[in-house]
């Protein structure tokens, strides 16, 4: 079966567009519809269901906490508020999951850069930082051992170790910037692009429809 996937840029726009509306709306039903649509999309797009399950499981205590605090402490309409805020939490969660579980960080950034003119300096800088993050954990171990073998200790609560980590990260970023320049990366100049990004016109329509549809639902309920 061919996977059904919306374009990453469209997903980002839907996420922001709906996200903004959800923040101001008071419609439980509208949030529920968003959740259902997102779940449907995640199933269709063959996202990693195990990851989705884990995400839902981890947020369960948060959702219960939200629910419980409204039931217990809300001065008016406790059930209404509990439903609204819990559904809002899941609507946000599933909107985010629809984007992040169907595309890698690179693909999202490349698509945004191509479709929505996000600056390539930001895209490649962000990617470089993301790639560095995995090295930083190892670096922390290295820093602690090098301190031990010099007769000093870095405890996790001592600021010294974080300062050292920051200094390391700064020197890495300088080295990386030099390397990117040496490899011909030039800010504000055209580059060619291997990445292909298909965006059928109807997906723009879908974006428009989803935003209007949500608004209509909110007004109607």
């Amino acid at each position: 079966m061919k996977m059904f996937r919306l374009n990453a840029s469209i997903l980002v726009l839907i996420m922001f567009g709906l996200g903004l509306q959800i923040a101001f709306s008071h419609s439980f039903l509208a949030n529920l519809v968003v959740c259902c649509f997102c779940l449907g999309y995640l199933l269709l797009s063959a996202a990693d269901l195990k990851k989705l399950g884990l995400v839902l499981l981890f947020t369960l205590p948060l959702a219960l906490g939200t629910w419980w605090s409204f039931i217990k402490f809300s001065t008016q309409d406790p059930w209404q508020n509990a439903l609204l805020y819990t559904s809002r939490l899941y609507a946000y969660l599933l909107l985010g999951a629809s984007l992040l579980l169907s595309y890698s960080l690179e693909k999202i950034l490349f698509s945004l850069s191509y479709r929505l003119k996000l600056s390539t300096t930001f895209v490649y800088g962000f990617l470089a930082a993301a790639n560095l993050l995995s090295s930083l954990k190892k670096q922390l171990q290295v820093i602690r051992y090098s301190a031990y073998s010099r007769g000093t200790k870095y405890h996790f609560y001592r600021p010294g170790i974080y300062l050292r980590l920051v200094v390391t990260a700064l020197s890495w970023s300088e080295a990386l910037a030099q390397a990117m320049t040496a490899q011909g990366f030039s800010e504000g100049y055209p580059r060619t692009r291997v990445f292909s990004d298909s965006l059928p016109k109807w997906q723009w329509g879908l974006l428009f429809l989803s935003l209007i549809g949500y608004l209509a639902l909110v007004i109607w309920t």
Binding site: Y124, N131, A175
Partner: peptide, 13 residues
């Protein structure tokens, strides 16, 4: 240019 310390010179994965 090939840098002397190439290990920190890769910005991609």
């Amino acid at each position: 240019l090939l840098f002397q310390d190439p290990s920190r010179r890769f910005n991609m994965k």
